[in-house]
């Protein structure tokens, strides 16, 4: 594998670690099976690309894309909390609605961002090659997001969100407005995914309507891989595991696709993802069996 594709894998891995952090909040902390992600990722991308293409400052465009993601998450949560639609179904409805909404926002199936300025082209120092500068900038964004989340989830509000996911009935009896906490948590989760979408279009040269397909599976894969590599209880290590999981996942994908002797091609991506997730899920099981045998 070339150095170039290694940095490429790192770059995409870091972007998807933002998705994975979002998926971690919805699936793990809130226990809300949220497929909105497949729509909020391209939503963030679409909003960002359209705004930049119309001459807006890339930083402002990225912030607005993040807020758009948050709004999508809130709508899914409101469908579930206030209109009593089953969580999974609410997120599927939002996901397919967002497909149309994203097409409307973009006005056409793709928007190239080759010549326009991006966050990365502005921040990149002259003396550094772009394929190194981009992962470096992303590392800082991801670390900032991770540390902010760590701090947030030790506040009273963050604790209330975690309690809501863990035991909603008890949380209510302790005076936690669990409905509001689900809406808030889903907003934060999808804001991260929207941010990831904005980063994606700015590094990959444009937005495409099909860029969201499979986002949820990649996010979930990263969470599961992270958890099996670094089993943890404390929030700091949990989020660290998720970020590492996303990067490792992309690294394995790149390895599989770039090794000619295996004979895999780009269209095999989803199959590789599925196999990787199965392996990550099976590892703890095998570990358990091995330790049990040792005890016998």
């Amino acid at each position: 594998m070339s150095l170039f594709s290694l940095f490429g894998a790192l770059e995409v891995g870091l972007i998807f670690s933002l998705v994975a952090l979002g998926v971690f909040i919805s699936f793990r902390l809130l226990r809300f099976p949220d497929l909105t992600v497949d729509g909020s990722f391209p939503l963030g991308g679409a909003v960002c690309a359209v705004l930049i293409a119309n001459g807006m400052d890339p930083f402002l465009a990225t912030i607005i894309a993040t807020l758009a993601g948050a709004l999508a998450g809130m709508v899914t949560a409101v469908l579930n909390v206030h209109l009593k639609i089953m969580d999974l179904l609410a997120s599927i409805l939002m996901m397919i609605a967002l497909y149309s909404i994203n097409l409307r926002i973009m006005g056409r199936p793709n928007i190239p961002l080759i010549m326009e300025p991006t966050m990365f082209s502005i921040l990149q120092p002259q003396w550094l090659a772009d394929y190194i500068a981009r992962p470096l900038i992303l590392v800082m964004v991801v670390i900032a997001a991770k540390l902010l989340l760590d701090a947030y989830f030790t506040t009273r509000q963050g604790l209330a969100i975690r309690a809501t996911g863990s035991n909603p009935r008890m949380s209510r009896s302790q005076g936690v407005n669990t409905g509001a906490m689900v809406i808030l948590g889903m907003a934060i989760s999808n804001a991260l995914v929207g941010l990831a979408g904005a980063m994606f279009v700015q590094t990959q040269g444009g937005a495409d309507i099909s860029m969201g397909i499979g986002t949820i599976v990649i996010g979930l894969a990263a969470v599961i891989i992270g958890e099996s590599i670094l089993p943890a209880r404390r929030i700091f290590y949990l989020t660290l595991a998720v970020v590492i999981g996303a990067v490792i996942y992309r690294f394995f994908i790149a390895l599989a696709l770039n090794s000619d002797f295996i004979g895999l091609q780009a269209q095999d991506l989803n199959l590789i993802t599925a196999v990787l997730v199965v392996i990550a899920l099976v590892i703890p099981l095998i570990k358990q069996r091995l330790t049990r045998r040792r005890h016998v």
């Binding site: 947030y152 030790t154 506040t155 009273r156 509000q157 963050g158 604790l159 209330a160 005076g175 936690v176």
Partner: peptide
């Protein structure tokens, strides 16, 4: 019964 803001829990 208290407001759950951004102070440390």
């Amino acid at each position: 019964g208290q407001r759950r803001g951004l102070r440390r829990a």
